[in-house]
């Protein structure tokens, strides 16, 4: 029982990380039809930026963690905005080229991270509280899980509120449904492109800082390894659906944890099998409107 609780909470925590990556991917794809391969690099860069902050503060305080998160989000957002303005926008409506450009960017940036921070992982520490545990239903749950879940929920609520209550949010929701009609109402939808890239980049940057807390390190490959699961999550959830991404993140991560524990480390394979099963039954994903 206590093992199960631990696995479930850990799964939800991991799901929170997947969601932070997948939410941006899904929004960007939903609005622009762009698959952003460089999204993992936004995450990695956010993680390194957060590490640089906490290294300079070197006190393991909450202030340092909060500052890391803020800086990680800001760096992620800025790089994402630059990507959209300098690379994606030039290739407006040429979806294959847009994917290719982000592939090139992903290759180049991972190599650059190698060069700057070295191929070896750098170790990250946070407030001591995160390493402690608390008893929940008989299980000893490490506190970092709560941090992941809390921040991801906050980000989810923040994005939902943004989409619901701002004009940009309105434009984005409408654009996901029918982009050309948005322009036919006199709205320059490209502004919304930059905004979703910024949101996605910020979420990824936050995800990077959290991932480095959770795993205890940052490496140039950090983003890429999470990105693959985020891709799986977005396809299972339904491309373009934020809610689908949230549900699929949880399902995938929990399943992965359970399979890793009860079926001798087969978590990654089970997740891919789940993907195949979903595609066979429902090619458009759980919440996807279009096939």
């Amino acid at each position: 029982m206590s093992t199960l609780v631990l696995l479930l909470v850990t799964g939800v925590g991991l799901g929170a990380l997947y969601f932070l990556v997948a939410s941006g991917l899904s929004l960007i794809y939903g609005l622009m039809g762009v698959l952003n391969f460089a999204h993992g690099s936004f995450l990695t860069l956010g993680a390194y930026a957060g590490w640089e902050v906490s290294r300079r503060m070197s006190d393991g305080s909450w202030l340092s963690l909060v500052l890391s998160l803020v800086v990680g989000a800001a760096v992620g957002a800025l790089v994402a905005i630059a990507t959209e303005l300098l690379l994606i926008r030039r290739l407006y409506e040429r979806h294959v080229e847009q994917v290719l450009v982000t592939v090139g960017l992903a290759l180049a940036t991972v190599a650059l991270f190698d060069g700057i921070w070295g191929t070896d992982a750098v170790y990250v520490s946070g407030p001591a509280w995160l390493d402690e545990t608390s008893g929940v239903l008989g299980a000893q749950i490490p506190h970092d899980r709560f941090l992941l879940i809390g921040v991801a929920v906050a980000v989810l609520l923040g994005i939902v509120a943004f989409l619901r209550f701002t004009r940009f949010g309105l434009v984005i929701r409408a654009g996901v449904e029918n982009r050309s009609m948005v322009t036919a109402l006199g709205i320059d939808v490209r502004m919304a492109f930059t905004v979703v890239f910024a949101i996605g980049g910020a979420a990824a940057g936050i995800g990077g800082v959290l991932a480095s807390q959770y795993f205890g390190y940052v490496s140039p490959q950090l983003g890429a390894s999470l990105l693959i699961f985020a891709f799986i999550v977005t396809v299972i959830g339904g491309l373009g659906s934020l809610l689908g991404a949230a549900i699929a993140s949880l399902a995938v991560a929990v399943l992965q944890q359970l399979a890793n524990f009860y079926a001798s480390g087969t978590g990654d394979l089970v997740v891919v099998l789940l993907l195949a099963a979903v595609l066979l039954v429902r090619p458009s994903g759980l919440m996807g409107a279009r096939a």
Partner: peptide, 16 residues
């Protein structure tokens, strides 16, 4: 028509 089906009527109008 191409109204935005997932948006409310008011939101459709506000967008315009």
């Amino acid at each position: 028509r191409e109204v935005f089906g997932s948006l409310t009527v008011a939101e459709n109008l506000r967008l315009a």
